[in-house]
Design a protein around this nucleic acid. Structure first.
Lengths: 304, 304
DNA sequence: CTCACCTAATACCTTCGCGGTATGATGAAC
DNA sequence: GTTCATCATACCGCGAAGGTATTAGGTGAG
């Protein structure tokens, strides 16, 4: 059996007339006759009774018509869905995020993507940097978000955004009264650092910035993520350097203050990573969407 | 797209290797390569990534594999069901029966058919003889059961069985004491006749039998069917001639007695009728089944 | 009753494409 | 580097699909 024959059969059944069906199929009558005969022969079942006025479906033919329409619809659906999958508009995408990336920017990027491609099932996984790289290598995730990535041969990384750094200060601290701080405020207070885990990370960034300005901060505590860090600031342990997006984390007794000199290197990157050999359309569309909405976010931030 | 291509695709996907798939499909590798390429081209979607170790499904390919398996299963099911319909083993059969035919024989015939062909949906309709013929002509039924059918050009009828005639007698009647009756017992009692409705029918049969023996029975009452007739016998209205199969109708105060002389013409036929131009397989199988089980019934009756 | 007209079926031809064999290109393993 | 596997390409022959011309058969009008 052949899908072409199904098409032919449906046409003949609907027209109840081979000649008219042939016209509709843009072909001549004799080959159509032959195809119908072959179909009947292959099924070993009479589908039509030939009358002087045309073709009339038998009971078996009526049943087969329903089945044929089913099959045709299923085929159309299959091609359509496959094509959408091939364009990265349908399927599943496993995305890894890290702890404080939950704050603000990343969720918005992913939300934009989900709105644009509602038939892609985005599955989120929380992983550390090292876990993300291992998961990429095992194909357990397709893309990950992280900061401060060292280059690797098999993993490509792409900076999505850079964020300014702010200082989280306890509201009772005299520093909190000022609208902006000099960078060396860090030298005058115990500092809370995060994250713990694989280096290089945000800790190294902060320490490097201080070193460039000729001082070494007093480390009050190292913690796992930004949320814990801000919680310690609220408890009066010290100050804590955080990326801009952490300010969505409103914590009683904590204010986020910019640096008055706003040094160009006092920024931290936010990157997404993916396999260098992954050319799947779903990743391509995701990256395109992320680049687009990250650019929009940047613009909105600059104008604010 | 082509069903053959689906088969090829499934094989390649399952083997993850064109060469092995070609072997499995009993063909050589190059044409298989080409068919897969054509399929991808037609779908405008990459289904496989070519590796030095074989073919690996893309996400779109994985989805298409599931769809292709679905389609293949649906096609197999469609051919199988159509073939069964073409053999009269699947479908719908509208059968008309008349009032007292509900008794015994016909239900058994239909039950046998339903057991033998469980996928045929038998729909029963109760109709008089005239209604059955009209319904056949309008294709509202496929086959009907009735008695005493006059031949018609467009309706074929076939005697399924003949039944002996018995006399239903009230238990208080002195006749009821005898094991068998002479035929002219009918001349000595008021007679209940049935059915009313289109002639010729069973009434004519009874009257003709009496006339052949030189008497005209006294008609106590004409009623619609055997059930009512027997009820009147129970009430003492008179006697009533019934076909053998009516004896399944056990009625308190009524006995069924055979005729001692058992004349050869004291029998009545039971026929089935169908369109002369109906050659549908479902009718053919039904008739074959009916003939077979009617013969078995006859045999059982004779030996009893 | 016959003829015209509709229907589907058949005969024959051309062409396109499927499958075959032989060979090439490419990456992995030793 | 050589060998072995993979898939891709080139080219050929044949079968089958579609086209044209015609036949066969039933219906309805005159």
């Amino acid at each position: 059996m052949d899908i072409r024959q199904l098409r032919y059969f449906i046409a003949v059944a609907e027209e109840a007339n081979i000649g008219r069906a042939a016209t509709r199929l843009h072909m001549s009558q004799p080959p159509l006759t032959r195809q119908i005969q072959q179909l009947e022969e292959e099924l070993d079942t009479q589908l039509f009774v030939r009358t002087p006025r045309g073709m009339e479906l038998t009971q078996a033919g009526t049943l087969f018509l329903a089945e044929a329409r089913n099959i045709r619809a299923l085929i159309e659906q299959a091609t359509e869905r496959t094509q959408r999958a091939g364009q990265g508009r349908l399927g599943r995408l496993d995305v890894a995020i890290f702890g404080s990336a939950i704050l603000d920017r990343i969720p918005k990027l992913i939300l934009n993507f989900r709105n644009e491609y509602p038939d892609v099932n985005v599955v989120l996984h929380t992983m550390t940097k090292a876990e993300q790289i291992a998961a990429l290598r095992q194909n357990r995730i397709t893309v990950g978000f992280n900061r401060m990535l060292a280059p690797l041969p098999d993993i490509r990384s792409e900076v999505i955004a850079t964020e300014a750094l702010l200082l989280a200060v306890n509201l009772n601290d005299p520093l909190a009264a000022q609208p902006a701080l000099p960078f060396d405020a860090l030298a005058r207070r115990p500092v809370i650092l995060f994250p713990s885990g694989a280096r290089p990370n945000f800790v190294d960034k902060v320490l490097a910035l201080c070193e460039a300005r000729g001082f070494t901060p007093e480390v009050a505590q190292e913690v796992g993520d930004a949320v814990t860090g801000v919680a310690l600031v609220a408890s009066g342990f010290g100050v804590c350097m955080v990326p801009e997006s952490a300010t969505t984390l409103q914590y009683p007794g904590v204010v986020y203050l910019p640096f008055e000199d706003a040094p160009a290197d006092a920024r931290v990157d936010l990157s997404c990573i993916y396999r260098a050999d992954d050319h799947s359309p779903i990743l391509t569309t995701f990256l395109a969407s992320v680049r687009k909405s990250a650019a929009l976010q940047d613009e909105a931030m600059r104008s604010a």
